[in-house]
Amino acid sequence: MSRLKATLKATAATTLAASLAFAPGLAAASPLGSDPIRLVIPFGPGGGSDITARVLSATAPEFCGPRIDVVSMSGAAGLEAVNFVRNAEPNGHTLLVTDYGPIVTSGFVDDVDWSHDDWQPVMNFTEWLPTVYTRPDHDIQTIEDWMEAAESEPGTITFGHASPLGIVHLPLILLEMETGMENVHVPTSGGGETRSMVMGGHIDLGMTLPASIASEVAAGELTALGVFADERSPALPDTPTFKESGYDVALPAWLMIFATSDVPSETVEFLQDCFMEALASPTAVAMSDRVNAGIEPLNAEDSARLYQNTVDTIGSILREIGEID
């Protein structure tokens, strides 16, 4: 069994080593050479991370030099992507684009051979704000309605979220920890299933990210109850935050680009600069608006702070619910 693992690692490592060893000369301004940069996403194609990463891959080559490919590797619940980047040559050509699930949460609960310190953020694309929503003809229409209903009949409200301990489940756990309320947690296969169960009247509430419900909320086909963030979401300007209602619960899900910590700091700095420059270009801004990605880039330093905070928060939640010691 361990041989299989070793073979896998060897394959991945040699794969990259061989492809990079023959880079024909370095491009003038770039420390990267002309071999393509791979943005590896630990999810299937077509989702929010894929679409956001493609904005970068379409605009950044002009600023960074080499071509940029988005590679989707959803195997082993995303851990295959993480391991692929981890075992790649540390030269900045293989980067991980992920939310905190496969890197922070997995780093705690899964049997992995890396720690959170083995990663350094290159930049952050955006912060997704988990949002609770329901159908407009449901009794619960505000955060207050929800709290009252949960108090009068604890443990009866059915709440759909994607996979357990994911980015749209942990905020609910955090809220229940803060308030002591109880809901029936109904895991689903993802945002699509949650939404059809909410719309079809099979469950009471669901959680998702603003971009996927913004137009329905504007058209009055769904009601957004509240956002787990310090500030309101630009996509849902009329939806209050939980903080406004007096519950200090915020757990935004960022989408960050990571390099392994052994990538030289000049390379990371170069990548950060050219990515930020690319995303500030008019083409990228127009694309980001068109796909509703809400890209607001953060530099490496701020991203690192955000990353560290998330590691602390998620760690304390997981300790509290007994997932880790």
Partner: peptide, 11 residues
């Protein structure tokens, strides 16, 4: 069976 690669299930 203790194989991390199988944690995502079989595709």
């Amino acid at each position: 069976f203790g194989i991390p690669a199988l944690s995502g299930g079989l595709a």
